[in-house]
């Protein structure tokens, strides 16, 4: 028994160290984002605490030798791309998972082909797409060649999420709807979809965040108009400044607000049901 207790302690401390390892760079990044500017560099010690680099990100700082991050347009591009990717890959993920609910010949091949999209490294796919685009003679753009690869990448995630949801789905409610004379299409809209909706939301969340942060696939195929991650990658070559850290902190906050929207949507969908129930009560009595 003693052995188990000491093992518990060892593993507990190990896990704590692990969490510190995961978060260490973030803490450092957070601290350094408040470095004095524009002279202060991305390293210790902190010369003086300031919000200079945050102002710099928003273009509010007085002009200096350090170029502002090219965020404006790149950010809008990234968000548009992520949104379009989210819609297309979630729709395809739901359709494919729906097809997988019934066994069919060749399901193994289709399954692994779809999964391949998330497994093949981005560099390879990007390279292949560039070669293909050159061959066929189409231009590379973030909204064309990069977009289709984003979908190839996020669609398997949406598919897997929906597959897991459908695995726990009770088909008898759909049969009940059909036997009440409701067409298969309307059954899907009125019964299946409302029940799987939380799963669809998480599939959308997955697709959006993956696409928003996607970069190896976009690097070759995105063309001359850069997305956010490509803009950041561009700063690798030159000297980095704490404005990148300030931007990191901001984008993390943005991600959390996205997460919060997801949470709110989920709660709302539950509350709406309850509200409809109570609204009816007032109606009847």
């Amino acid at each position: 028994m003693d052995k188990v207790v000491s093992l518990r302690w060892f593993l507990g401390i190990f896990t704590a160290a692990f969490v510190l390892f995961l978060y260490g760079p973030f803490i450092v990044m957070g601290i350094l984002s408040f470095q004095q500017g524009p002279e202060g560099g991305p390293q210790f010690p902190i010369i003086e605490w300031s919000t200079y680099w945050y102002q710099h990100v928003f273009g509010l700082a007085p002009p200096s030798r350090i170029a502002p991050l090219p965020i404006g347009e790149a950010l809008i591009r990234s968000l548009t791309l992520a949104f379009a990717t989210m819609v297309v890959s979630t729709v395809m993920g739901v359709l494919t998972a729906q097809a997988f609910r019934q066994p069919f010949r060749g399901s193994g091949v289709v399954f692994y082909s779809v999964i391949l999209g998330m497994i093949v490294p981005g560099v390879l796919l990007g390279l292949g797409m560039v070669l293909l685009a050159n061959q066929v003679g189409i231009d590379r753009n973030w909204w064309s060649t990069a977009f289709v690869l984003h979908v190839v990448y996020t669609y398997p995630f949406a598919f897997l999420v929906m597959l897991a949801i459908f695995n726990r789905f009770d088909e008898s409610v759909e049969e009940a709807s059909l036997s009440l004379g409701v067409s298969p299409a309307k059954t899907f809209r009125k019964v299946t979809f409302p029940i799987i909706f939380p799963g669809v939301l998480s599939a959308m969340l997955f697709a959006f965040t993956l696409s928003y942060d996607e970069f190896p696939r976009t690097l070759f195929t995105g063309g001359s108009d850069v997305t956010m991650p490509i803009a950041i990658y561009g700063t690798f070559a030159v000297e980095i400044h704490p404005n990148l850290f300030a931007f990191g902190v901001l984008s993390t906050l943005f991600s959390f607000s996205l997460l919060a929207v997801y949470g709110i949507l989920l709660t709302l969908s539950i509350r709406r049901q309850n509200q409809r129930a109570s609204g009816l009560q007032e109606d009847i009595t």
Binding site: F26, D213, I240, L244, F245, G248, S251
Partner: peptide, 26 residues
């Protein structure tokens, strides 16, 4: 807790190691 870091841009997560590991790093 383990997944939260993934909501920060991958590239920025990589860059955050520089001030961590450098000669004058944390």
């Amino acid at each position: 807790t383990c997944v939260i870091p993934f909501w920060t841009s991958f590239l920025i997560r990589v860059l955050a190691w520089r001030p961590m590991l450098g000669k004058e790093g944390a």
